[in-house]
Design a protein around this nucleic acid. Structure first.
Lengths: 159, 159
DNA sequence: GCATAATAAGTGTATATACACCTTGTGCTC
DNA sequence: GAGCACAAGGTGTATATACACTTATTATGC
C-alpha cells in the first residue's frame, strides 16, 4: 500500500538513510582527505610540469637527499609508505637514472642515494615547487595553513 | 683543495642545500597530505575489513547513494576525481554487482545507481566506518578535528 | 658449526589515479 | 539534412598504492 510503484523492489530492502549518507560524505576524514590530496597533487604536478617530475617523485628524491645513504625499510618508515610501494617507486627513478641502488654492507639491504642526475633534477624542481607552495599558503592565509599542517601531522601520527 | 676525496664528483655538482630539502619535507602541503592519506586510508581499511569493502569503495557507494541517478561526469565533479578514474572505479563495483550502469536518456551518458547488493553492502559498512570515524575524532579531540576538516575543505576548494 | 628464527627486499596481483587519445551521440548552422 | 563543433564516455599507458607470498641473507640457540 505504501509505495508500490517506484520499481519492483524486494520486500524489505534496507537502504542507508539519506541523512547518514550525507553525514558520511561531509564528515569522513578519509574521503575528504583523499579529495584534497587529488586536488593538491594536481596543483603541484601542474606547477612542476616544466621540470618533468611529478610531485610524488620530487618529494621522494627530497627524502633521499636528506637521508642518504638509506635502506628501503628505513626510508619507507620515514615517509609512512609501505615498503613494497617504495621499492617500486624507487625502481622507476632508478630506471630514469636519478637514484643509485647499491647493495649495503648487510647484503640483504639496499643503499639508496641520489645520482648526479637526481641532484640536478631536484635543484631544477625546487623553485617550481616553492612557487606552488607559496601560492597555497597565500591562498589559505599563513595562520590557517600552519594550523592545517599541524592537523595533518596529527593524522600521520595516528596510533 | 677543499673536499677532494669523498668520491669522484664532477667539478660543479649542484646539490639542493640540506636546509632546503629539510624545509620541503617538513612543510610541503602535498607530501604531508599524501603521508596522512596513506595512514588514514590504512586506518579505515582495517576497520572496514569485516565487510569486505575498502574505504574508497564505500565512499563511492555513499556518493552514489546520495546523488543517484547520476552521470559519470557529474559524479566525478562532485567528488573531485578525474572522469576516467571514476569510470574505472565504477566498473569494478559494477563487476561486483553493487552498481547499476544504464544508458541515460541522452545516449552519451550513463545513469549510475546502487543495486540492491550495493545498498546492502553500504548498510553493513556504515557501523564499521562510524567506529573508525569516532576513534579518529576522539584521538584528535573534537575541536582540533573540526578545524582540520575545515582546512582540508579549503584545500579541496583551491582555485 | 648447523638448524632454525628473524630480517630485508622483491614479485604477483589488485585497486586508485590521471593524462592523451579515440568513439559516439547531440545539437547547431546553413 | 549534411556537415561540423561540442559533449560524454571509454581505452591505452603510466604511476602510486598495498597485501600476500617468496627469496636471500643474517643472527641465534644448541
Amino acid at each position: 500500500m505504501d509505495s508500490e510503484k517506484k520499481q519492483e523492489m524486494s520486500p524489505n530492502l534496507e537502504v542507508l538513510p539519506l541523512s547518514s549518507a550525507l553525514d558520511m560524505g561531509k564528515s569522513c576524514t578519509c574521503f575528504n582527505l583523499r579529495k584534497a590530496t587529488r586536488r593538491v597533487t594536481s596543483y603541484y604536478d601542474a606547477a612542476l610540469k616544466p621540470c618533468g617530475l611529478k610531485v610524488t617523485q620530487m618529494t621522494l628524491l627530497t627524502a633521499i637527499r636528506v637521508l642518504e645513504p638509506i635502506t628501503i625499510k628505513r626510508l619507507a618508515k620515514a615517509i609512512v609508505m609501505d615498503r613494497t610501494t617504495l621499492s617500486r617507486n624507487v625502481s622507476l627513478l632508478n630506471k630514469k637514472g636519478m637514484i643509485d641502488i647499491e647493495p649495503g654492507d648487510d647484503l640483504r639491504t639496499r643503499r639508496l642515494a641520489l645520482t648526479e642526475k637526481g641532484h640536478t633534477a631536484l635543484v631544477a624542481a625546487f623553485p617550481l615547487w616553492q612557487k606552488a607552495q607559496v601560492e597555497i599558503i597565500n591562498e589559505l592565509g599563513e595562520d590557517r595553513w600552519a594550523s592545517l599542517l599541524e592537523g595533518i601531522s596529527d593524522l600521520v601520527a595516528l596510533s
